[in-house]
Write a protein that binds this DNA or RNA. Sequence first.
DNA 1: AAGAGGCCCTGATAGC
DNA 2: TGCTATCAGGGCCTCT
Length: 287
Amino acid sequence: MPELPEVEIVKKSLNKKIRQKKVKKVIIKNRNLRIKIPRNFEKFLENKIIDKVSRFSKYLIFYLPNNEFFLVHLGMSGTIHLVDNKIKKDFTNLSFYNSPFLPKEHNHVEIIFDKFRIIYNDPRRFGFFQIIKTTHNLKKRFSNLGPEPFDKKFNLNYFNKFKKNKNRNIKNILIDQKFVSGIGNIYASEILFLSRINPNKKIKFLNKKDCIQIILNSKKVLLKAIQKGGSSIRDFKNIDGYKGGFQDNFNVYQREGLICKRTNCKGMVKKKIINNRSTFFCNFCQK
DNA sequence: AAGAGGCCCTGATAGC
DNA sequence: TGCTATCAGGGCCTCT
């Protein structure tokens, strides 16, 4: 589910609620996420104050006192919900990403504060929790990931260096977190559409203008998605709010068979599996 | 040794 | 209705 913009939305709403709040209790109902949640996680976290929540790429970083941290990755299907302790079971009065209702199953982790609790839900269990004990280790944890699209390191020079001696297509590069951090399968298609570049194009054939377009549009698409509250793919029944809005701005993603949205382009959006992932593009204006 | 492909897991949907 | 097959927003590991 979540790429950088969605994780950013979660981070912002979490920060508003749990900054400087003390964790009273942690309940883990299922430790078997992609990485097993360590046995000592409850002890580690209980009675500590959450300094703030930060984010790098698609990772949430919870800051604790004395240079300790824990990471949460949402994988494909992870969501975080805030539930009032009094209401407890039924409603969440605040949705962090895309569900105002707390799902009935797969609520694996509860972090309980004085007046409310946050609940980690993840049907597919591709997400994970990780304890990080020092600032140095935090830095090390992300050391083999590329810069975020907003980073000034993500520039033409960097792109050119990365292109060297590689025989890969641009779509594959864009979702490679070693190249750039935070772009996933949806936004890669959208970025390439705006850049008018065919996802299958080998990076060695990209010219200077192509690379600049990709760099600029990466920033543009992600920022716009954040502004819109992220993308919600699955529609909710019975609710009116709390949905991200960027899915309405998709130009190609999940628009297979429809006419290209670009003015005066008569092309059609195609879907093709590239490197095992669905990829959407206009067969006419993306060269 | 770069790059393709498989795998972790559950749920929604399509097709028969 | 009920079965089976396919696909889903990520990331890591294993082959060749």
